[in-house]
Simulated assay, not measured.
Amino acid sequence: MACIETLLYFESNIPSVEWPFLILHGEKDHLCAKEGSQMLYEQAKSTDKNIKIFPGAYHHLYLECPDIRHEALQDTVDWIAARIEPIKK
């Protein structure tokens, strides 16, 4: 029951999400529904948000086949790097 209540709480509070986020989701993920990721992306108030669905991929993108793993890691690094200040020497 607590799990369902928590999920309902999060679902009802998605519109209040204002912080930057990146969603990477495997198309064939059987643990987390990609529709939930799509809902977060569509309903969150944040203006800095990205979503990418990986065709043929499952739940843990960083442990997928080398091509998907590399792309997911590169997408993550690029997303973070675009949002941090360079170190001044």
Score class of each variant (00 low, 15 high):
83 R>Y: 04
85 E>K: 15
48 D>I: 15
35 E>W: 06
4 I>R: 08
25 H>L: 04
32 C>T: 15
78 D>R: 01
6 T>E: 14
42 E>Y: 03
52 K>P: 03
76 T>W: 02
49 K>S: 08
53 I>G: 05
57 A>E: 00
21 F>Y: 15
79 W>T: 02
83 R>I: 04
36 G>E: 13
76 T>R: 09
59 H>S: 09
8 L>T: 01
53 I>P: 07
10 F>V: 00
22 L>M: 12
13 N>C: 11
42 E>W: 01
56 G>A: 03
43 Q>N: 14
89 K>F: 11
13 N>F: 12
29 D>Y: 07
82 A>E: 11
3 C>A: 14
24 L>N: 06
10 F>R: 05
38 Q>P: 03
49 K>D: 06
85 E>R: 14
67 D>A: 12
88 K>G: 00
66 P>C: 00
50 N>S: 09
42 E>Q: 12
77 V>E: 06
28 K>V: 04
75 D>Q: 12
23 I>V: 12
74 Q>F: 06
70 H>L: 10
75 D>C: 10
66 P>I: 00
83 R>E: 06
37 S>L: 05
80 I>K: 00
86 P>W: 00
88 K>I: 13
29 D>P: 12
32 C>Y: 07
58 Y>V: 11
25 H>N: 07
45 K>P: 03
5 E>P: 02
18 E>H: 13
19 W>T: 12
68 I>N: 02
12 S>F: 06
83 R>W: 04
66 P>R: 03
71 E>P: 02
51 I>G: 08
22 L>H: 11
5 E>M: 10
17 V>G: 07
9 Y>P: 00
86 P>V: 12
67 D>R: 05
69 R>I: 00
41 Y>T: 02
62 Y>A: 11
19 W>G: 08
41 Y>H: 14
10 F>L: 13
49 K>F: 07
37 S>Q: 10
81 A>D: 14
56 G>S: 06
19 W>A: 10
78 D>G: 00
21 F>Q: 09
12 S>K: 15
61 L>R: 08
19 W>M: 15
74 Q>S: 09
2 A>M: 04
66 P>G: 00
6 T>M: 13
56 G>M: 05
82 A>H: 03
37 S>T: 05
80 I>Y: 07
25 H>F: 02
1 M>Q: 06
86 P>G: 03
10 F>H: 08
27 E>V: 01
88 K>T: 12
88 K>M: 04
3 C>Q: 12
13 N>T: 10
22 L>V: 08
9 Y>L: 06
36 G>F: 11
